[in-house]
Nucleic acid binder design. Sequence first.
DNA 1: CCAAAAGTGTTTTGGATACACCCATGA
DNA 2: TCATGGGTGTATCCAAAACACTTTTGG
Lengths: 237, 237
Amino acid sequence: MRAEPFRDPKGVAKYRHEVLAVVFRVLADTPSLQVLAWQRHHEPFAGQWALPSGPVEVSETMRDAMERHLADKLDLVAVRHSEQLATLSAPLRDPAERTIATAYLGLVAEATEVVKGGAHWFDVSTLPQMAFDHDEVVRLGAHRLRGKISYSNIAFALAPDEFTLAHLREIYMGVLYHDVDVTNLGRVLTRRHQIEPTGHRTAPGQKGGRPARTYRFVEHSLHITDPFAVLRGDQKR
Amino acid sequence: MRAEPFRDPKGVAKYRHEVLAVVFRVLADTPSLQVLAWQRHHEPFAGQWALPSGPVEVSETMRDAMERHLADKLDLVAVRHSEQLATLSAPLRDPAERTIATAYLGLVAEATEVVKGGAHWFDVSTLPQMAFDHDEVVRLGAHRLRGKISYSNIAFALAPDEFTLAHLREIYMGVLYHDVDVTNLGRVLTRRHQIEPTGHRTAPGQKGGRPARTYRFVEHSLHITDPFAVLRGDQKR
DNA sequence: CCAAAAGTGTTTTGGATACACCCATGA
DNA sequence: TCATGGGTGTATCCAAAACACTTTTGG
């Protein structure tokens, strides 16, 4: 039986509000885009995989709530960029009680592991069935990330502090899911002042090969670097 | 005195949730981007201008609630495109009681008037002081629209069904707030199959001049026409 | 010397811009 | 035929892409 909503004296309904986190990392080797999920212990959807989530407390913003839940339940504090994705309001999306949920996109660097709370990283391309509408939220997050990586410096949040161009290429390939030319990637990002050489080089691999220069992202906060695809005009009136 | 939140037996807080609508139109003559606001009658912020808003009912989605409030309070049913903008959760944004609000961007065609409910169209560039955080929401909406008009066909929702290129240019100028070249605008939108000629022409103006062809948008739903600014690769793997 | 990996140089492409010029109408 | 506004043609620009070639390393 579905719970009746709370109403205040004027008859205005009150709802449970929770935050969801779609946390992505990219493994360069495969390369693949992975999302963090954990197994539910309680009904509804007990035993199924779900995104990290939790209610919003009275004196915190939704972003605070999202960070708090990731830290408390999963010991995850290494989120390097987060932004609001969407708010879900289908009346029956939670079978127990009407719950409005705001989803956040979170990005962590490649090496990030999560040991606590039975969490697991899943390839976005082979996602298991998920609780609630969480599959849809993951797809939405992947779509947002794919769009933004082309016209912003959002990759700073997925890459380590220091990386080679070959490594960065694999991160881009994991997100975009198509081939990316290393040479041109380096030139585009350099022209846009997104990356700069550190002056260091890596040790060459076991099978030889020229040692690669390493680079870093110039900014570690989100910047739109290609603001208007077209119709730029002369920006004067 | 601030109201205490409702809590269920397990101690989970429940919140008032409302929807906000940032409804834009563009007047071609000026040209200017205008937003719909109305004057509040009750505290808090009585007498100040505010965006149309209202609570979400138990069995409706937020989009339904937004459309319902616009129709009931302002007789506005001509919204040609709407999309979710953001959800606002600052704990003190509503001085009376914690209220989480989800803002929608709505677009109507130029001629759209609103007669009911004491509503008024304001130029976004000369916005009055607004209730709550509504100024910020208007700016967010304008920013979203400005970005999207360059890489999607979103202008279909602002233009009349049939228009001349000169007219469409003024709509783009109202949104982008910089000069747009008519010739190139027509060519870009034609190449992207966003617009097509209707085969009609307008009557020439009072002072003469060649009669203009009219055009229509091919699609009347949102399509991204310039999906990846760069790093397109060959789309093969 | 060869294989492997990184990096450079150079050409090509194609959408977008700029702008000169031509066309159709009213007075 | 002139003023006004619409439309066409074309040269130019420039970021991005493609790809051949050179450099630096280990074996």
